[in-house]
Amino acid sequence: MNILFVTHYTGLGGANIAMLNLIRQYKKRNIGTYVIMPEGSKGLREKLEDLEIEYAQIRMPWWVGDGEEGSLKSWKRYLSNFRGALEICPYVRKWRIDIIHTNSTVVAAGLLAARMTRRLHVWHLREDLSNYGWKFCLNDKKVKKWFHNSDRVIVISKACERIYEKYLDLEKTVLIYDGAQIDSPKEVPVLEDGVFHMLYLGGMSLSKGYQHILEALVLLKQRTEKRFRLWMPGCRENGRANKELEEFIEVHRLEEAIEPMEYMDREQLDQFRYGMDLFIMASSKEMFGLVTVEAMLSGVPVVASDTGANPELIRNGENGYLYPYGSAKALAEKIQEIMETEDLGNVIEQARAEAQERFSMQSCAEQTIDIYRGILKNSDMGYRC
């Protein structure tokens, strides 16, 4: 069995990390795996080379953007997907691909290439377009038709399915949570004693809710004399913090409470996480939350907003904590409650056990491979090279 992944970017965000996790499992099972990605390199290319995975880079078109459906810009975007599909087709034949697996909501060239070459197609929906201000370049009827043309659609959460259900054939739609795995740290970071250390990931993106966390810290400072510090990887570049963040810290005198940091790669982050007392997930519409699961596996308590897929992962007071999205006051109260709880052992162990059981990479890979086998078994498509 040969699988071709199509991804819309070259960075190491959640979607590509989840794809790499699948690829590692496929290699163990001797499943041929290949990747098509856009031009450029922001980390993915190096990871694929380390795994000895063959890949190609093309001018990857998106079928989403910030333009209005029906505009000239949208029509150009729509037509560019056929050009992208034509670039993919030679690789489908060269690598003798059986199934094209589009690892993103925002590209449709994989589906078109599958139909041009009479291969099977799996569409893995991951992103909430509204978080980025994106829209499909087609009207709802045509979007629905394209999704229905895929042999299977995988959604990564019930929240993800709710967003796209008006476009989907639910009989061909399958829920598979992403798998996660972390390595034991080679060295646990040594951080200042007597300080409650918190971790936030997501940069200066409004959809990730950083603004609510900052507001909560202002309130928390008024509520407690205990020392705390929020670590923010990805919010400092070339030695300088984000200007807006710098100004906020200065105005509210939070120099000792907020620590903007340079970008961390996955290995650095996995190690750094072990020094944390709390992980904060404040997103408005998180479609899964791979970093949330990684925190659970690391034994770091999680406090998360009650939106998106967060309630599918976290049950308040049992394996983590939830607060009403957008309420800085509620978040500050929840953080203070956690800071003042002497023993979080039961919550931590419950979270770790559930994460290991529900979100293992092995389980995710097996469920996905079962989909491949099912559509191959029921397919009457032959190669048309």
Rank of each mutant, 00 (worst) to 15 (best):
F82A: 08
E39R: 14
S379T: 11
S327V: 08
L51K: 00
I36K: 02
R236M: 14
K142P: 01
V64K: 01
L129D: 07
T224A: 03
D270Q: 12
A216T: 02
Q222S: 13
V6W: 01
N30Q: 12
R96E: 15
C235L: 15
K28P: 01
V122W: 00
E69L: 02
L269Q: 07
N21P: 06
E337W: 08
M339Q: 11
E256H: 12
E225F: 09
A159P: 03
I176Y: 07
S298L: 06
S41H: 09
L219C: 01
I154L: 13
I371F: 04
V6L: 10
I280Y: 00
A216H: 01
C89F: 06
T292L: 14
N242P: 00
P185N: 05
I31M: 06
Y167R: 10
Y78F: 14
R223W: 04
K142A: 14
T292W: 01
L191K: 12
E340R: 04
I31S: 00
G289Q: 04
N346K: 14
S130N: 10
W231Y: 15
N242G: 00
G65F: 04
L376C: 14
Y323T: 13
K76P: 00
Q356A: 13
P185T: 05
E247Q: 08
K208T: 03
R373H: 13
I369L: 09
L278Q: 12
E349I: 10
E312Y: 10
K94C: 03
H124S: 10
S283P: 13
M296Q: 12
E294W: 05
L120F: 02
S298G: 07
S41E: 15
A328N: 03
H252G: 08
V174E: 13
K226W: 02
R45V: 15
Y263V: 10
I258N: 06
Y164I: 10
R96I: 04
Y91P: 01
G275F: 04
E312F: 05
E237T: 11
A216Q: 04
V143E: 05
E366C: 00
K27R: 14
S157F: 11
T368Q: 09
L230Y: 03
N238Q: 12
N103D: 14
E286R: 08
P90H: 07
K144Y: 01
H8T: 08
V218W: 00
H101W: 11
L214N: 01
A332N: 02
I369D: 01
D140V: 05
W123N: 03
E354H: 02
V190S: 13
L313C: 03
Q362L: 12
